[in-house]
Structures are given as structure tokens and as C-alpha cells.
């Protein structure tokens, strides 16, 4: 980890527009465009040492987007635009978080929700609606936003949602 990160950091310092590379657990060696790095204003809960991430589409036609940590090659979340799951999902973002992400209103943020996919049981995939990731795409800063647990399910069943009682 340290070698890959160090190599990347060195190249990054040498020239901000020059792509660096990093060895990751899921994708092998990836190239990193310094202009695409997203910095967490607050780290993900449980992962305090990872602040820098990149978004990697799973494939050209795929709705899935990986959030790969640049500070920990082993850390990657698979996410999806919640609008693809629940068109009405427009959680109220607290004012302090709008401040933290340097926007005036929630509409300026892009949202992703993290998916949990049990190994070998893809059909039990759940989406974390309680803690969406809000991204300011212009400033490339992001934060996981804790919402109201009485309204949002951290384990929302993606594939049985039609029968569920979730929002």
C-alpha cells in the first residue's frame, strides 16, 4: 500500500495534470487523474484514514459506480445513483452539511448510495438509504450524510422493493 501511494504522491507533486497510477485490490493498477480526485470533508464512518477517492464506472453500460479509496488500495464501495432505484428519493440535507459541502441547496449535490452485496447472494443486495454519499461535483468534495433513521433504511432491499414499505 505504502509503495503504491508513495509513488502516486510523488508523481502528483511532480505535476498536477499528469496521471499517476496506483495498485488496487479490485482493479489492479489504475491510472489516477489528479483532477478527478474527490476529497471527503469527513471520512466515511469506520474508515477514518481514507480521505481521497475516485469514481470508477463499473462498465460503459453499467449503473454501478465504484468509489475507490486512494489512501487504502483495499477499500472500495460499490454505489449507484439512488434515482435509478427510487425516483422519489430526495432526502433533506441538513444546512450544516450544505455548508460543509460548499453549496447553497441540496439540488447542487449529486447523490450516490452504497450497496451491500452478500458474497454469492447477489439477489440479497441492499442499498444504504440512511447514509447517502453527497458530492459537490464542481469542488470534488464529498461527505456521507447521516439521515433520519425513522425515515431511511440502511438495508433497503433493492430487488424486492416493489413489495416493500420503504419510501
Amino acid at each position: 500500500m505504502t509503495e503504491a501511494t508513495a509513488a502516486m504522491t510523488n508523481k502528483h507533486e511532480a505535476g498536477p495534470n499528469r496521471p499517476a497510477t496506483m495498485m488496487t485490490a479490485k482493479f489492479g493498477e489504475i491510472s489516477i487523474d489528479a483532477d478527478k480526485i474527490i476529497t471527503m470533508t469527513t471520512p466515511f464512518l469506520g474508515f477514518p484514514d481514507s480521505r481521497r477517492f475516485v469514481l470508477r464506472p463499473h462498465g460503459p453500460e453499467s449503473p454501478f459506480i465504484w468509489l475507490q479509496s486512494l489512501d487504502d488500495p483495499n477499500l472500495a464501495f460499490v454505489t449507484i445513483n439512488p434515482a435509478l432505484l427510487i425516483p422519489t428519493y430526495r432526502p433533506e440535507i441538513p444546512p450544516m452539511i450544505l455548508d460543509e459541502l460548499a453549496v447553497k441547496e441540496a439540488g447542487q449535490l449529486e447523490l450516490l448510495v452504497i450497496l451491500t452485496i452478500p458474497k454469492g447472494r447477489v439477489e440479497e443486495m441492499t442499498a444504504n438509504l440512511l447514509g447517502p454519499v453527497a458530492i459537490n461535483p464542481g469542488k470534488r468534495i464529498a461527505k456521507q450524510v447521516p439521515l433520519d433513521p425513522t425515515r431511511y433504511d440502511p438495508c433497503w432491499q433493492v430487488l424486492v422493493s416493489d413489495e416493500g414499505t420503504n419510501p
Binding site: 479490485k26 466515511f44 464512518l45 469506520g46 474508515f47 463499473h58 462498465g59 453500460e61 453499467s62 449503473p63 454501478f64 477499500l75 472500495a76 464501495f77 460499490v78 435509478l84 452504497i114 450497496l115 451491500t116 452485496i117 452478500p118 458474497k119 454469492g120 447477489v122 439477489e123 443486495m125 444504504n128 440512511l130 447514509g131 456521507q144 447521516p146 433513521p149 440502511p154 438495508c155 433493492v158 430487488l159
Partner: peptide
């Protein structure tokens, strides 16, 4: 609430990398 999100983040990182089947499901 924070504990719940932390636990779910940890579970999410155990997600398999084998996603082609997922695209078909969605």
C-alpha cells in the same frame, strides 16, 4: 445512527467484485 451507518459501511466493503450478473438483474 452513526453506529448503524458504520456497520453498514463495513458490511458494504465485503461486497464482491463480480458484478456483471448485477447489471442483468437491475
Amino acid at each position: 445512527v452513526l453506529t448503524r451507518i458504520l456497520e453498514e459501511n463495513k458490511r458494504a466493503t465485503e461486497t464482491t467484485g463480480d458484478l456483471p450478473a448485477l447489471d442483468a438483474i437491475l
